[in-house]
């Protein structure tokens, strides 16, 4: 049997509905809630059943044509992984080095990952933009942006 996109999707959602249903049963109820027509578990239980039923329906009615199999050739997963890793790093950088430097690193890293190698372009596209955004946020819109834990530790908060 060929495994197609609908089979994979159906299986994923079937597993999700089982896990969701198990956790739905663990939602704490208030005393006496079990006698009420509606409580915190009502909708989650119904959704788990509904999702399970629909996943089974998808598995049963899955299209098995030629174009229905999952083909991952030609996709640049490595680059996407690097970009998303950079997004996560940006979140950490915000905490440690502050908004301005984190933005600068994020943009230069992003341009570099996507193939821009000219130092002049890298700097011209990132430095004025980062400084401009930082100035607009802090000076024009009066938004407080924390300087970053690293600066606080080095120079005192």
């Amino acid at each position: 049997m060929n495994i197609c996109k609908d089979h994979i999707g159906g299986l994923i959602f079937l597993l999700l509905s089982v896990a969701y249903g198990v956790y739905a049963g663990q939602i704490p109820l208030l005393p006496g809630d079990e006698f009420e027509p509606f409580h915190a578990q009502t909708v989650p239980n119904a959704l788990a059943l509904l999702c399970g039923g629909l996943s089974i329906a998808l598995l049963l009615t899955a299209e098995r044509g030629e174009g229905s199999t999952l083909k991952l050739h030609g996709y640049d997963f490595a680059l996407v992984a690097k970009l998303l890793a950079q997004v996560v790093l940006f979140a950490f950088a915000l905490q440690w080095v502050g908004f301005l430097l984190a933005t600068l690193f994020f943009l230069i890293g992003g341009f570099w990952l996507l193939g821009e190698r000219r130092i002049k372009t890298l700097l011209l596209a990132s430095v004025p933009f980062s400084a401009g955004i930082w100035l607009i946020l802090t000076q024009l819109l009066d938004i407080y942006l924390a300087p970053g834990a690293l600066f606080n530790q080095l120079f005192g908060g």
Binding site: L16, Y20, Y23, A24, I27, P28, L29, L30, D33, F38, H39, A40, V43, P44, L47, C51
Partner: peptide, 17 residues
């Protein structure tokens, strides 16, 4: 709808997922 159930339940105040 499932994602919408994450967080505190508005009717009972109990946390869900």
């Amino acid at each position: 709808l499932m994602i919408a159930t994450v967080g505190t339940d508005t009717t009972s105040g109990t946390p869900r997922f």
